[in-house]
Write a protein that binds this DNA or RNA. Structure first.
Length: 485
RNA sequence: GGCGACGUACCCAAGUGGCUAAGGGAGCGGUCUGCAAAACCGCCAUUCGCCGGUUCGAAUCCGGCCGUCGCCUCCA
């Protein structure tokens, strides 16, 4: 199994530090606003990585944090006239609402920064004692900064050189740092800001230190995998390496995995550009699984361009998969004819499907390729069913195929619904103005008309439903409805 | 300015030295159907931004050019 390591800029064989045990830490969100589709991508990517490692038999401990104290949270709270923790709690809840719908499994541990103040203080104290950090007076209290020049390897993750960073650095007149590259480990609180008691007076933690403290506590000195969005490489992850390795003297993480951005009009989606799309707004008009499929349809490190058209394509794809599964279920109801000899020449190579899927996923979690493998198999399945399988052997092969799609889909957390549920959910999300009962009533009416060869009436009903976004399919034994995408 | 990534059909997207350049969507033609829809079959890149080089052989390696984007500031 190979993974791309940002630290070495190369594909590497994945070998955890302790046999089958894997400790993963992924940077979560700062809870000050609704999550956007970029957050969704990162969450989906690491969700799939964890699911696949488990599928491969690794014993995974997955930690994903919440940053629940930060300037942005404080600003938002001040703007709304509420407390900072009210903001943090509110957006943590909203995070779960969105991520649950996207099928993101909960991490094994989901620590919050403010529950680890003591651990952070301990590290900061040690860094001062060992000469890696220094204090700066800020009125009654002190701030603590990490001195980047004391850590010569600084820049090894982001491939930056300290002197080049220095020459390009902005000079911030308000900060009393010794070097513009130094970053805050601990901030003295200004009046009105939240604070915790510390050896440096009333203050609050800097951003980066929380991840060092929480990963150390919940996983250990060296992580197998540390991940997050590519925009965290610098300075966040670079700073984490500096402070963690200065503290423990051990490598902070063996593999660094970073997901690419979501772009709109080829530009990175970001708050400062004002082009963010909230997950919430998209889930109002698209099926969550379609959004998830869209996010997995290109490699996790490539930039992925968002367009409504692409989500619709993903919906069409899902529709095809669920239609095929539905078809299999029809065959499962057929009483097998034991005597009939199999005359189907079409290959239904399920072991090959599995091995090709695994091959794709083993290659740096190539979900795009893995999906291609599944879609190819879907075509094979339909071809197989076109030949009207009827004996026991053929029908059990179909059931096994269905089970396998479910199993492999489970790694991506796709294709897990009952087909009828897919159409019912779509009925809601597309705001179709007709109930399932009404659809079934019209179908009954049309069945009667067709029996009487009243084609005109049958076509009128079909047309009426189509105008509301419902497509009818006449099967040999019955008529089913689907949603027009 | 420094560092990095990318450029594959009408659109999305795999493929990083050698069988016919995956897969999906759209489109066109056909089978099936009362008509449809779905499904299936066929067509849809002699060619991978451009120009050179290495090689028996390159979309894949090297060099140059053009274009797009990202990081260097809070960001998934």
């Amino acid at each position: 199994m190979k993974v791309f390591n940002t630290l070495t800029n190369r594909l590497e064989e994945f070998e955890p530090l302790n046999d089958k045990k894997v400790g993963i830490y992924a940077c979560g969100v700062t809870v000050y606003d609704l999550c956007h589709i970029g957050h969704a991508r990162s969450a989906v990517v690491f969700d799939v990585i964890v699911r696949y490692l488990r599928y491969r038999g690794f014993d995974v401990k997955f930690v994903r944090n919440f940053t629940d104290i930060d300037d942005k949270i404080i600003n938002r709270a001040n703007k709304e006239g509420v407390t900072w923790n009210e903001i943090a709690e509110r957006y943590t809840e909203e995070y779960y609402k969105d991520m649950d719908r996207l099928g993101i499994a909960r991490a094994d541990i989901e620590p919050k920064a403010t529950d680890h103040i003591a651990e952070m203080i301990k590290i900061v104290k040690a860094l001062i004692e060992r000469g890696y950090a220094y204090t700066v007076d800020e009125g009654e209290a002190q701030s603590v900064y990490f001195s980047v020049e004391k850590f010569p390897q600084y820049g090894k993750l982001s491939k930056k050189k300290i002197d080049e960073l220095m020459s390009g650095a902005r000079v911030d007149v308000n900060e009393r740092k010794r070097s513009p590259l130094d970053f805050a480990l601990w901030k003295a609180s200004k009046p009105g800001e939240p604070w915790w008691e510390s050896p440096w007076g009333k203050g609050r933690p800097g951003w980066h230190i929380e991840c060092s403290a929480m990963s150390l506590k919940h996983i250990g000195e060296t992580l197998d995998i540390h991940g997050g969005g590519a925009d965290l490489i610098f300075p966040h992850h670079e700073n984490e390496i500096a402070q963690s390795e200065a503290y423990t003297g051990k490598p902070f993480a063996k593999y660094w995995i970073h997901n690419g951005f979501v772009t709109i009009d080829k530009e990175k989606m970001s708050k400062s550009l004002g082009n963010v799309l909230n997950i919430r707004d998209l889930l109002d008009i698209y099926d969550a699984e379609a959004l998830r499929l869209f996010l997995l349809s290109s490699h996790y490190r490539s930039p992925i361009e968002f367009a409504h058209e692409y989500i619709k394509e993903a919906e069409a794809t899902l529709d095809r998969v669920y239609s095929t599964i539905w078809r299999i279920e029809d065959f499962e109801k057929v009483e097998p004819k034991d005597k009939s000899k199999s005359n189907i020449q079409i290959e239904l190579n399920i072991e090959n499907l599995k091995s090709e899927f695994e091959k794709a996923m083993d290659d740096d979690f190539n979900t795009a390729k893995a999906l291609g493998v599944i879609f190819e198999f879907i075509k094979e399945l339909n071809r197989f069913m076109d030949k009207k399988p009827s004996n026991k052997e053929e029908l059990s092969l179909l059931s096994y195929a269905k089970k396998t799609i479910n199993e492999l889909g489970g790694v991506l957390n796709l294709f897990q619904r009952e087909p009828i549920q897919w159409y019912r959910d779509l009925l809601k999300i597309k705001k179709v103005e007709i109930s399932e009962e009404e659809i079934n009533r019209l179908i009954e009416e049309r069945v009667m008309a067709r029996k009487n060869k009243d084609w005109q009436k049958a076509d009128t009903i079909r047309q009426e439903l189509l105008s509301k976004g419902i497509i009818l399919e006449d099967k040999p034994d019955r008529t089913v409805w689907k949603i027009k995408i």
